[in-house]
Nucleic acid binder design. Structure first.
Lengths: 188, 188
DNA sequence: GAAGGTTCTTGATCCACATCAAGCGCCGGC
DNA sequence: GCCGGCGCTTGATGTGGATCAAGAACCTTC
């Protein structure tokens, strides 16, 4: 069974008839390491599920970049607010490793929302999950200092350290690469 | 026509028959100034639409409070992640002024999601809006310094300054009351 | 496998904002 | 209408993490 169907069915069950309607709208897209999947200022037409690879989501701000999230196998990837509002994306997405995404276009997904009620529900459940993730992250930023944020990350996502550059993790944790490096040397 | 119906119909149209199913589940709840609507650690059973009053949403962290949002007339109010996951809330909600909310219980809303497809869609649209708001706020925190965040707030929500204490706005903008006070004296 | 770029480390210095402190004024309650 | 307390202001001092700088260890790529 396809990755896309399995991923959707983590949230809602689809009959074979429903899947037959949904399936043709998804297509694979491949990106080599370093390629941009979405650039700042472009409208995001895709919503994607990651089959393989790691991507980083970041904001550009006078010359520097601040990482706000990562996506990897089995998670979704994209810029949801640009996708929804059809406005230029304030975030960029870049493949950190060679990546394969399965993607659906906005018009196709919104068509499915109208024709397949289970997909409308899926949209709601995905968003609930995203929103809960954001709330958790906001609380971490508010209540933890640099060291505690670092400890939290290596506890919760130790694999990230192997996959992406330390400077990206550092900016994700809202600190400079120097501070991150010093923490690594100091902690444990 | 009721506030609740009008508010829902900003997102989806309801037939009179659908409204007849939806309406009985909503009830008014009144809170005097200063009352807690949700306490940290309690599971949030309500989702609410604000008829009148202002509420603040905040995180408690060793003795101090950090404001993460406000709700007022026509906006929603509640702790969505606790509501969805039925886990103890990490946020508290307090009435800043005398408030009237129209609220629906979790079981009732999830029942409506199953019986009234338009409500399932409404849930998705509300979440899209919330997520876009969070993204906007995250970008502000990342790209603006204390003064720019202050200027942004007085431009976008000048009424807030009249409605809530400066210390709450200060913590919402991630600064101390002292820094906020100095900005007010310095800027314009 | 040499060259050149990028990332990571380590040290010295700096600064925006927090913290501490003290006085003032306003508002709400008895 | 007076008292008590919280919120606001203003000044002095402190500090976590940023910035600046320079060398070392990687990867890439040709």
């Amino acid at each position: 069974m396809s990755l896309v169907r399995r991923t959707i069915e983590r949230y809602v069950k689809l009959t074979d008839a429903e899947w037959a309607v949904v399936a043709p709208h998804w297509q694979p897209r491949d990106f080599p390491r370093g390629a941009f999947i979405t650039r700042t200022g472009e409208v995001e037409p895709w919503f994607s599920i990651v089959e393989q690879g790691v991507q980083r989501l970041f904001v550009e701000h006078d010359g520097s970049e601040v990482c706000v999230g990562f996506a990897y196998d089995g998670s979704w990837s994209g810029v949801y607010d640009s996708f929804v509002t059809r406005t230029p994306s304030r975030f960029a997405v870049q493949a950190v490793t060679d990546s394969r995404l399965w993607s659906i276009r906005r018009e196709a997904l919104y068509g499915l929302y109208d024709t397949v009620p289970a997909m409308d529900r899926w949209g709601r459940l995905i968003l609930e999950e995203l929103l809960i993730g954001r709330a958790t992250r906001e609380i971490e930023q508010l209540t933890l200092d640099a060291e505690a944020r670092y400890r939290n990350l290596i506890r919760r996502s130790p694999h990230l350290l192997q996959l992406v550059a330390q400077k990206d993790i550092a900016s994700y944790l809202r600190m400079t690469p120097e501070t991150f490096s010093r923490l690594r040397a100091r902690v444990r």
